[in-house]
Amino acid sequence: MSTTTALRDRTALVTGATSGIGKAIALNLAGQGAHVVLHGRDQARGEALVKEIEAEGGTARFVAADLTDAEDTLRLADEAGAVDILVSNAGLYEFTPTAATDAASFDRHIAINTRAPFLLVGALAPGMAERGHGSIVIVGSSAARLPAPVGAAYGASKAGVEILTRYWATEFGASGVRVNTVSPGPVVTEGAKAMLGEHIGVMDSTNARGRAGAPAEIAEVVSFLAGPASSYVNGAVLFADGGERSTLPG
């Protein structure tokens, strides 16, 4: 965990913070001096991350919540309190064909990937606006713009939150609240390893960079958008995907 003071006296709520990209984001923000409110579903993992951050000299607390439940999502916002930074990272991905995606699965994607950010922004952004400053960063996905034979529900849920980013940037921007999205490509996380197993290496062939990303690399981009260095960036979707591969004719 790097240590700077760029976000000292700022409070950040990070959803899905106990593993993968979310954990890297939480560690990065804490390393810059922010007090981090960690969200997840697993109390033990949440408390372990609090201890890890504290051991590095940072401050954090954990709030468990089920983002498939609208009321529990609003409770999370209430318990988080007056935050200066919201990082909506929690996500669900089930890469199945449309015919194999039932209504319950579709609803879960929308609830976690689209509705939860909507409710959190609605609950927290007005307070940021009253205080005259705030940064909201949505962790999106390249699936929102690069269709595949599977995962339509996931792609739709991420495309939805991208357009919401632009609406929120317009709605709250004049009050000092910036809203942006980071759109990662393939990233090697625990979830990706569990899903792909011994085939995890295929992710390295999907972009111009020639390798999949690391959670810490996405965290750096999120921290840039959350902090003062990006003060004139609002309503942007920033691609952190290693670059799209070009194909030669013939």
Rank of each mutant, 00 (worst) to 15 (best):
T5P: 04
T5M: 10
L7V: 10
R8V: 13
T11M: 07
T11L: 07
A12T: 03
A12E: 01
T18N: 05
S19A: 15
A26V: 10
A26E: 09
A26D: 11
A34K: 01
H35G: 08
V36Y: 00
V37A: 13
H39W: 09
R41T: 13
D42H: 14
E47K: 11
V50Q: 00
E52T: 15
E54F: 07
G57M: 06
G57W: 07
T59S: 15
R61I: 08
R61V: 12
F62L: 10
A64M: 05
A65E: 05
D66L: 11
D69Y: 12
T73Y: 00
A77S: 14
D78R: 15
E79F: 06
A80I: 10
V83I: 14
V83H: 06
V83R: 04
I85R: 06
I85T: 09
S88T: 09
S88Y: 06
G91P: 01
E94P: 01
E94A: 14
T98N: 10
A103Y: 08
S105N: 10
F106P: 02
H109T: 02
N113I: 07
R115Q: 14
P117Y: 06
E130R: 15
E130S: 13
S135C: 05
I136G: 00
P147N: 14
P149C: 11
G151D: 01
G155W: 02
G160I: 05
E162Y: 11
E162W: 09
T165L: 08
Y167C: 11
F172S: 00
F172H: 03
S175L: 08
V177R: 02
R178F: 00
R178P: 00
N180R: 03
T189I: 05
A192G: 08
K193A: 11
I200C: 09
V202N: 06
V202K: 08
V202F: 07
M203W: 12
R209D: 04
G210E: 08
R211K: 12
A216H: 14
A216N: 08
A216T: 12
E220S: 14
V221A: 15
V221F: 09
V237H: 04
A240H: 08
G242V: 07
